[in-house]
Amino acid sequence: MIEFVMPSLGADMADGTLVEWLKKPGDQVKRGDIIATVETQKGLIDIEVFDEGTIEKLMIAEDTKVPVGTLMALINPEKTIEPQKAIPVVAEEPVIQPTEEKAIPPFVTEHIQVKASPLAKKIAAENNIDLSQIMGSGENGAITRKDIEGAIEQGKLVQEKERSSIVAEPIKEQNISNTLRSAVAAAMSRSNREIPHYFLEKKIDLEKALAWMHEKNKVLPVQKRLLPVALLIKAVASSLKQVPELNAIWDTDLQLKTEINIGFVVSLRNGGIIVPAIHAADLKSVDEIMENLNDIIPRARALRLRSSELSDSTVTITSIGDGGADLVYGIIYPPQVAIIGFGSISEQAFAENGLLGVRPMVRVSLAGDHRASDGLSGSRFLVTLNNHLQNPEAL
């Protein structure tokens, strides 16, 4: 029997609240399926399953606060098992008892018996939706998250005294920005306490890289045009293949990672940051990385990410963007062992072969964990990164 446990979504996560099961006993699951929705400091997270089989038993009741590592479900790895009849999700001893149910706002009809999942009720309340007007598609007519989101997307059921159009905002950023900041603060405090940092910096000429990108963008539609950050991510991923000791985690000792998953720092509009992962960045083209960014950044700002996008990063990139600071020194996000920082791209004086000119330059920093690597390894990485950016067509 496979034990499905509450995953860790980063060093700043101690627990999460199970909002809704999206699978029931008897359902078959495969790798990548969403099995549940969990509320954390980083918003509502879709939790993926990474095994194949049939749901045998759900061990935790909805609306329960669950510590990381707690057994949540049992999965039978046998694929040929006949689906079982769905049974109610009931917490059994010694399962953590659910938190007290929050009162439903007065605009939700209470005198009509409405069967809906806790998450459906939550989203309905936030969007002023009368549940009694929705036809449920779940078991025995229960209203699900998809039913509510479908109503929102189609522009139905708008509350007269509220906004004229419904925007799907599962959790408002301003309501959790302080929580996010606290979570990041805890992780960064741990980093400063436990990780012996060393710092290196290198100026890199981006003239060839930007010229290559400009020519490529000429033949691309507007919505698919490249930004410099996509090229920088690809160059970092390619460099890590040559300096693998930076693509690792430290957990009592150094553990090198074969897959290169780039964590990319995204700033939220109302404060705080979140760091989703771009999986297998070394195997993606620059165009695919740009497409990935166009998908993941809006979802990150809406706080609607998958669990793997928050837990799988093997190294982190932070980029200031245009018009910002010239240099950023990052703090390593444990258990990773490195973070690469890109300052703002700006025109600077540049000498080559005895001649002085003006080039688009970027100052790149590397913060490394001295337990996992040293200045020589870090310097080799920055030199390799520079070489890749001088030959962008090879990326």
Rank of each mutant, 00 (worst) to 15 (best):
W212T: 09
P228M: 02
E101W: 10
G271R: 01
P83E: 04
D295I: 13
A211C: 13
G69I: 12
K216W: 06
Q348M: 12
K42I: 03
R190T: 14
S373L: 04
S164A: 12
A281Q: 04
Q336L: 07
V108T: 02
E92V: 14
I262F: 05
E153P: 12
T318K: 01
T40W: 00
A351F: 06
L44M: 09
K241Q: 12
I317V: 15
L293N: 04
L385S: 06
V362I: 11
S189W: 02
L232P: 02
I345Y: 01
A151F: 10
I317Y: 02
N247A: 02
E288K: 08
K203Q: 14
L305M: 07
N127W: 03
A61K: 06
Q174M: 11
T258K: 15
L220K: 09
N391W: 06
L355W: 04
E82D: 14
S373R: 01
H370Y: 07
S373V: 09
V236F: 02
S117F: 01
S313C: 15
E78L: 12
V358W: 02
I274P: 03
A372V: 04
A367W: 00
I96G: 10
A280M: 10
G43L: 03
D147P: 12
G330S: 06
N294C: 13
S308E: 11
N128Y: 14
E288G: 09
Q97R: 07
A302M: 12
K208N: 15
L395D: 00
L395V: 08
S177W: 10
N76A: 13
T80L: 12
E48D: 09
E352P: 08
P106V: 14
H388E: 07
S239P: 12
E82V: 11
I273V: 06
E56L: 04
M13K: 00
I134V: 14
G138W: 00
A185W: 00
A120C: 12
G69V: 08
I112E: 04
R31K: 15
P88D: 04
L227W: 07
N192V: 13
L58K: 06
K216R: 11
V114P: 02
